[in-house]
Nucleic acid binder design. Structure first.
Length: 877
RNA sequence: GCCGGAGUGGCGGAAUGGCAGACGCGGCGGACUCAAAAUCCGCUGGGGGCAACCUCGUGAGAGUUCGAGUCUCUCCUCCGGCACCA
């Protein structure tokens, strides 16, 4: 009979339509009693359509949302489209179309596919970042930041691609310094005026809050490292015979007495002022040479280079005059662009000192036992000498093992007491460097002595002394730089700023937003460093309150669009404000955010910053659960894994992407959803193997047959065979905790296991039939809805029902099988009462065949280890 | 180089320190069928044995433990991120 065969196409169409007309997915954002906000990173609607990677991400979030809904929460699960940005613009240029013209059909296609997947979206709150109704408020957010001092204009170095003819973002530069779109073109650095957001003002909070945020560890560490906070001191070095001072940042002020020279970054502005004028030519040549090198080349070329610029600086702690160099191993964009070089305490300074024959002043007695090989560097001849003397050492001389190749000499040296002692002596003689723990020596002047103090004690002491002498101060340094948001491009929200005749910026009044992106047929970058908007006189000339201005012609970074979209969702149709504060207090912070870890340091960091800045500005307030930091938008974040197919990451260039349409057409959305979740742990990703989807399809065929074909006797739950009841409650317990921790693969396995048990029994019960349907519902919402109505005869959606609860008492059988080990090896199994006492377990075990068999030759029982309900281990001798 | 994550059958993957390989794919055998597909049932880590059973086995090597895939140390390999960050 046709209706007895699982027909996903028919079922899914039917229930999607029903959900729509009944408004099953709708949430009353104003009156929800038990709000729970599930957010997933919204997609960029590409022309290719939904990628199965998107489906993977969204399904995982949707399952969480559906599960929470079944647990009684009012789940808000919105969706939107992130269609501004260089991606869309480049694609439009490639096919010679206008981006605005492409978006609607792409969005329509995405919408069709998202609906096809049966995601629990409330489509009434959909947003599109390219609509003026949305970007009006993106501009409003810019203005709030501007008014409160978090947005400023500055002229800094930016990336310029000659082939693109435009400035590009940091993230569009390949690691080797070429352009993302032109892998044969090197990106240039140019100085241009740009708008920046002061994200560095929040650097401490961005790091510190990770102590309590419930986020994936990988994401946390990526952010913490990106912000890159280090604590140390700024120290001033006077220049002999001049007014200027060189300011350095160091994490090791305790080694100040060992500073024997200084190094400035080649681009350091002080160089032109203080360098010996007769060296101008050499300096220019050195700069040119290092500027021509890419980051990659600099790192690969380990050999240190540099140039003495013919002045002396004065070490403030001992008055010694030390030479000043420029060298490309010092970066202009970190710290102050200048360092004090302590060759005894830093391997880079050590290498430089060896190359240029500079003195190495010993200032540390290394604690070799507390350090590791990474802390040590030695000149090669000393290294060889030590290795030679250790050749016959039992550890060093012998092979480590046939599986581990020879470790590098420093590791070997650090592996023996003799080696460490010799290395220590070499460091004392200035033939090596040590950056590990130890005690400071040779470090005193008339006023202060660090001798004998540890690194930590010395840092505190010297910093206090420098402060008292006005020579320096404690300082935290960050790797993080302010966020440059100007794009000399077309496809983004215009920056709402105008300039008067003096070139001074003024904000566009809020009531005149949005600054509309003009329709332009030619929106290609011109390559003159100005944005395409600059060519539209109509756009550029603005009159505000009777005065004429010239508009800013750059647009904003696409990452700003996505830094606040979740604030907009609950107020998506509100044309009076960016977001309703009452709704913010109700729904934020987001309860669960799910997305790809590739956004750990971009989107997720920018977003946290935007919320903090808005909260500081007094225009954003979140609910009570944000008490610890009123600017933190995401209580919980989980990064999903990546899909692998045919041995590599799914990507267009590899040609191994999967179009969900085909799989849905063949097996249905429920099967694809469940299969994707069954591949492996959700947070780790999985291997998409086309054939394996059959397994889930068969499972659903069996589920369908269980409800619609199998004529089982329905009995009161108490009358079910005990093993069926126990399995049911065990699997409810397992599925519940697995869903909570996003371990979807094992939750699905639990459902399969349960079905195998249920099918084997002639009897079933209403409780079992209902519980199993509910357990499937987050994964296979259409099938569950079909079973709920048609097989179980219920009215109203299955998603209005409650998740089943297990009874702990019913998760254990009356009798359990327990392994019996002899000397740790399983030799037999005994069946005992569930709550049998230790004594019974022990005596039963000692009687069993497996134990007797293994106790021949007069062996004696020495000890019996009994773990009730688990095992018995008999130790014999 | 540094920081994460991972290494388990033919494959994807399971295992609060307590029976390694749940669940699924694939494979083998069988039922149904004229036949195939679908479906259903059984078996399926290696080696030995007619069998009961024995033995080896979670990247390598050591250690802790009555007991280690799991904890500790020393390595190896793969993946991801950062990288002369002072």
């Amino acid at each position: 009979m046709a209706e007895r065969i699982y027909d996903p196409a028919q079922i899914e169409k039917k229930w999607q339509a029903w959900w729509d007309t009944e408004g099953v997915n709708n949430v009353d954002v104003h009156n929800a009693k038990n709000p729970y906000y599930v957010l997933m990173m919204f997609p960029y609607p590409s022309a290719e359509g939904l990628h199965v990677g998107n489906v993977y991400a969204f399904t995982g979030a949707d399952i969480h949302g559906r599960f929470k809904r079944l647990q009684g929460y009012d789940v808000f699960e919105p969706v939107g489209f992130d269609a501004f940005g260089i991606h869309s613009e480049n694609f439009a240029m490639k096919i010679n179309r206008h981006p605005a013209e492409l978006i609607p059909s792409n969005v329509a296609n995405f919408t069709r596919q998202l609906k096809m997947m049966g995601l629990m979206y409330d489509w009434r709150y959909q947003v599109d970042t390219t609509s003026p109704e949305y970007y009006k408020w993106t501009q409003w957010i810019f203005l709030q930041l501007y008014k409160n001092g978090y947005a400023y204009r500055d002229t800094k170095e930016v990336n310029f691609c000659p082939a693109c003819g435009t400035v590009i973002a940091d993230e569009q530069v390949n690691p080797d310094g070429t352009c993302e779109r032109h892998s044969d073109t090197m990106v240039e650095r140019r100085k241009m005026p740009c708008w920046f957001f002061a994200i560095t003002k929040f650097a401490d909070r961005l790091v510190d809050n990770h102590e309590w945020l419930d986020w994936s560890d990988v994401t946390k560490t990526a952010q913490i490292r990106w912000v890159g906070r280090s604590k140390g001191a700024e120290v001033e070095f006077p220049i002999a015979g001049r007014e200027e001072k060189i300011i350095v940042f160091t994490t090791r002020p305790d080694t100040l007495f060992g500073a024997t020279f200084m190094v400035l970054s080649p681009e350091h502005p002080l160089v032109d002022t203080i360098a010996d004028p007769s060296l101008a030519k050499q300096i220019a040549a050195y700069r040119e040479r290092s500027a021509a090198m890419t980051e990659q080349e600099r790192i690969e070329n380990k050999e240190k280079t540099g140039l003495d610029i013919g002045v002396k600086a004065v070490n403030p702690v001992n008055g010694e005059e030390i030479p000043v160099f420029i060298a490309d191993y010092v970066m202009m964009d970190y710290g102050t662009g200048a360092i004090m070089a302590v060759p005894n305490g830093d391997h880079r300074d050590f290498e430089f000192a060896r190359k240029f024959n500079l003195p190495v002043q010993c200032i540390i007695d290394p604690a070799m036992d507390q350090g590791s090989a990474e802390d040590l560097s030695l000149i090669e001849s000393v290294e060889n000498e030590i290795m030679t003397s250790l050749r016959n050492h039992p550890i060093i001389g012998g092979t480590f093992s046939e599986h581990s190749p020879t470790p590098p000499p420093l590791v070997k040296i650090m592996a023996s007491t003799e080696g460490k002692e010799q290395a220590r002596s070499a460091i004392h003689r200035g033939l090596g460097a040590w950056s590990g723990p130890g005690r400071i020596i040779n470090s005193s002047n008339d006023e202060i002595s660090l001798d004998g103090k540890t690194k930590e004690e010395s840092i505190a002491a010297i910093t206090a002394w420098l402060e008292s002498k006005n020579l320096g101060s404690e300082k935290r340094q960050f790797r993080l730089r302010d966020w440059g948001i100007s794009r000399q491009r077309y496809w983004g929200p215009p920056i709402p700023i105008v300039y008067d005749e003096n070139g001074d910026p003024h904000p566009v009044p809020e009531d005149q937003l949005p600054v509309m992106l003009p329709e332009m047929t030619d929106f290609r970058p011109k390559g003159d460093g100005r944005g395409p908007l600059a060519t539209s006189e109509e756009f550029v000339n603005a009159t505000i309150d009777g005065k004429t201005y010239r508009r800013e012609t750059d647009v904003m970074d696409n990452f700003l669009d996505s830094a606040w979209y979740f604030l907009r969702y609950p107020s998506a149709r509100d044309d009076q404000q960016a977001y309703d504060l009452e709704l913010m207090k109700k729904w934020l912070p987001v309860d669960m955010y799910i997305g790809g870890n590739e956004h750990a340091v971009l989107h997720l960091l920018y977003t946290r910053f935007i919320c903090m800045a808005l909260a500081e500005s007094g225009v954003l307030e979140m609910g009570e659960s944000s008490n610890r930091d009123k600017g933190e938008p995401f209580k919980k974040f989980r990064a999903h894994g990546l899909l692998i197919r045919e041995g590599s990451k799914m990507s267009k260039s590899k040609g191994n992407v999967v179009n969900p349409d085909e799989f849905v057409a063949e097996h249905g959305a429920d099967t694809l959803r469940t299969y994707l979740m069954f591949l492996g742990p959700y947070t780790q990703g999985g291997d998409f193997r086309d054939k394996d989807i059959q397994g889930v399809r068969r499972f659903f065929n069996r589920v369908h047959a269980y409800y619609f074909d199998d004529k089982k006797t329905i009995v009161p739950d108490e009358d079910l065979p005990k093993d069926v009841r126990v399995k049911t409650h065990q699997m409810i317990r397992k599925a519940t905790s697995d869903l909570e921790s996003l371990s979807y693969n094992t939750a699905i396995a639990a459902c399969m296991e349960l079905l195998n048990t249920l099918k084997a029994s002639e009897q079933t019960s209403d409780f079992v039939r209902e519980a199993f349907c509910l357990m499937l519902a987050p994964f296979a919402p259409h099938l569950a809805e079909e079973i709920w109505h048609t097989a179980l005869g219920r009215e109203g959606s299955v998603f209005g029902a409650r998740w089943p609860e297990h009874d702990e008492k019913l998760t254990i059988l009356d009798e359990v099988e327990i392994p019996v080990q002899v000397n740790g090896r399983v030799r037999d199994r005994i069946i005992v009462a569930r709550d049998a006492p230790k004594e019974t377990l022990e005596s039963t075990a000692l009687e069993c065949d497996g134990v007797k068999r293994n106790m021949t030759n007069g062996a004696q029982v020495r000890k019996v280890i009994v773990v009730p309900g688990r095992l018995v281990n008999v130790i014999v001798k």
